[in-house]
Design a protein around this nucleic acid. Structure first.
Lengths: 211, 211
DNA sequence: GTCCAATTGGACATTAGTGTCTAAAAATAT
DNA sequence: ATATTTTTAGACACTAATGTCCAATTGGAC
């Protein structure tokens, strides 16, 4: 199959991608059991048999979807993390701005939301899959944030004793309101993200800011 | 049906309860679509027909389960909230002790965990059901915590400007580690709960404690 | 003991989904 | 143009689930 993709990248990849994309939406909407191959096929505009040709069976389809989403999501977050303020002139303002972008991305990005949902729902069925996701997805996010916070501490902007814990708490504060209010369907607007980021950063800095 | 329950409370209630109990575990394990009436029937030690006699159909069963769980969970939390420290001699220690108990209950209690799972998974299917749950379950929890925090502030132990926000952030800090590490299957021990509570309260008091 | 409601087990029709197979059609390469 | 590979549509067998109907049975109430 790799050979085929290498030789006919455009069309083969396009069809495969359409399948994976459709499968992602269906899996995340209906869960593993509720999702039907037929639904994926029609949504992808592809015959059912083609899906079986590509991924074998439902299990295979599911695993490929999760792998693809994980990669996609991780890549975007890597990029986003580069905007984390290194040597801010105004810690509060710059951290807030970054947090707002971070939160906005987390809540708007379909891939991220889908993965989170899948991870929460299907972890019982595929524990090994989501162990990987956790270490590679949310775990990686946390450790990147931890590294950045350490640097801020080193540069004298924060007062930390455990950067990993601080990162976890930072992320918890940042996503607290979203988890409580928005998770069911609605999306926060950019303004709402900014508001949530402001309140989270304010508390975070009350706890860990240099006084 | 109410008449029946009133006339023969023991047996009718016992059978009904066995059904609801079994249904709760099956729904939470397999989700709405994955759960089968037969599985519920066998787990409850009851004929399938009896279930249909009691609750009509799968939808009815699901709604009754959620209603029952919501009530049960709410009652327990009401009780637990009475242990919140009013006029502590040592804020940090007493708040930590309460938080540890709270977290222990939240993570160990099957009802709570099931409801949380159901809320996260099935909110798309039954939005109205979980709007109620949110206001009556997690929302009520938060507002109770907010009230207690306000009192602590009034008594000069905390420095707050928004008690509701503080309550949300408090709960987010408290559950942060559990959400990240334990959600998939494993349970935190009492010692682990104490540890998580200590770290959460420490940060919370760094942010909001009177200095 | 007799009556009555609840319960049971099993047969049943219906629906929906998975995965396989095949022959025809479409797209692609040579 | 022709050969090869991919894709398609549809038929198919198989499984599992929902919800209904009913006759037989249980178990408590009077």
């Amino acid at each position: 199959m790799d050979i085929q993709n290498a030789e006919r990248p455009d069309l083969a990849k396009s069809k495969r991608d359409r399948i994976l994309e459709a499968a992602a939406t269906v899996f995340c909407q209906d869960g593993y059991t509720g999702a039907s191959i037929d639904a994926v096929a029609t949504k992808a505009g592809v015959s059912r048999q083609t899906i079986y040709n590509h991924v074998g069976d439902k299990d295979g389809l599911f695993k490929e979807v999760v792998a693809a989403l994980t990669d996609k999501s991780a890549a975007k977050f890597m990029l986003l993390m580069e905007e984390f303020p290194d040597k801010p002139t105004d810690v509060s303002a710059e951290l807030t701005a970054f947090s707002a972008r971070f939160l906005n991305h987390l809540t708007q990005d379909k891939t991220s939301r889908w993965l989170l949902r899948l991870a929460e729902n299907e972890s019982g069925r595929y524990p090994e899959l989501f162990t990987v996701w956790r270490e590679y997805g949310s775990g990686r996010k946390r450790s990147l944030v931890a590294a950045q916070l350490s640097q801020l501490a080193l540069n004298g902007f924060l007062d930390l004793d455990d950067a990993t814990l601080a990162a976890r708490q930072f992320l918890a504060l940042l996503t607290a309101e979203w988890r409580a209010e928005f998770q069911l369907g609605r999306f926060p607007s950019e303004e709402e993200c900014t508001g949530m980021a402001e309140r989270a950063v304010k508390t975070f800095l009350r706890a860990f800011g240099k006084r």
